[in-house]
């Protein structure tokens, strides 16, 4: 589908910062409520793809209060962590670059409706990669995918329906990578094609691809169309590589643009994207250890009790559990 203008991506999935905040707060609130009422937050996805709510735990209320729910910032950190994992997994499988882009967008859209406390992001991340492969005609069986990262593939299949459903079956997404190619092509015409410039444009393209990879980990893909993400990445890269006069280039494209967006509006968007990328903090293993422990206790308090005991027995074991979580997915 070449036409972004008539796409579901544009009409339904480019949101405002306020939309994002509201949806995430709603999901977080729902999970908190569930923790309060039932003592745990995990939703079971059965083999048939249906979701069941947990039975209330029999523990006393006081005990339940000892379990703290994740707050919105912690949820955010977890999501970023697993989005980065999507890039690692797809890299390890040597999938075409578009696969990870699509999978990350699916993952982001999924967690606009759910809290990480309801569906474990590790499961959803793999299911998003699996669905992305199907949609981008790069079919990999769930078994292969599961094997490659030593995860149970049945979990991927169990979650497939709930992921597709949560995406509202809007499966065609526009990642910014193709837009970069398009702009580079266009720039070739803009700068009279000298060989030296050609080579530099290629460098610019490679650098911009890395920049977009970073932007994909922010909220920007839910807030801006792919063309603007691509332009922002090209502008950032150009500041270092200094290949073209970017201001003049932006003027040129806004004057040619059909949809009457003026140059200052476009620059404003690009600045906003830059800001998001600058603010991006990728959680460290230490951040993650704390959050992951919290998440596990929300999802399943009983396992937490056991792990506490285990922790007491041998400290290095719990360290191992964390590094497993981080490294399991990149093997294969």
């Amino acid at each position: 589908m070449a036409d972004f203008r008539t796409s579901t991506h544009r009409s339904k999935w480019i949101l405002t910062p306020r939309d994002l905040l509201e949806k995430r707060e709603a999901a977080n609130w729902r999970a908190r409520k569930m923790l309060e009422d039932l003592g745990l937050t995990r939703l079971d996805v059965d083999i048939d793809g249906s979701i069941s709510y947990p039975e209330p735990l029999q523990d006393s209320k006081a005990e339940r209060h000892s379990i703290k729910a994740l707050n919105c910032e912690e949820e955010q950190l977890l999501r970023v962590f697993y989005e980065q994992k999507i890039q690692e997994v797809c890299g390890a499988f040597k999938f075409p670059h578009k696969i990870q882009g699509t999978a990350i967008i699916y993952f982001k859209r999924f967690y606009l409706q759910w809290s990480v406390m309801e569906h474990h992001p590790k499961h959803i991340m793999l299911t998003c990669v699996y669905a992305s492969c199907k949609v981008e005609e790069n079919h990999v069986s769930a078994e292969e995918l599961g094997k490659g990262i030593q995860q149970d593939h049945q979990m991927i299949l169990n979650n497939e329906m709930v992921v597709l459903q949560s995406l509202g079956f809007d499966l065609i997404v526009y990642a910014p990578y193709r837009s970069i190619e398009g702009f580079i092509d266009d720039m070739e015409g803009f700068t009279e094609a000298r060989d030296s410039v050609q080579t530099k444009l290629k460098e610019l393209q490679v650098a911009a691809k890395f920049e977009v990879d970073r932007a994909m980990l922010t909220d920007a893909p839910l807030l801006f169309p792919p063309g603007q993400l691509a332009l922002a990445a090209l502008r950032r890269s150009n500041e270092i590589l200094k290949v073209i006069n970017f201001e003049r280039y932006l003027e040129r494209i806004t004057s040619a643009e059909r949809n009457s967006q003026n140059a200052s509006q476009l620059v404003e968007s690009l600045n906003a994207i830059d800001l998001l990328v600058d603010k991006l903090s990728i959680p460290t293993a230490k951040d993650m250890r704390h959050i992951d422990r919290k998440l596990r206790s929300c999802l399943d308090p009983s396992s937490q009790e056991e792990s506490k005991k285990r922790e007491k027995k041998s400290k290095h074991k719990s360290k191992r559990a964390l590094s497993e979580m981080q490294e399991d997915h990149i093997e294969g």
């Binding site: 979701i51 709510y53 709930v162 459903q165 079956f169």
Partner: peptide, 14 residues
């Protein structure tokens, strides 16, 4: 799309 939306509320899932 029909069933796709609003499921986060738990209606579709159950």
């Amino acid at each position: 799309m029909g069933d796709g939306r609003g499921i986060a509320g738990g209606t579709g899932g159950a």
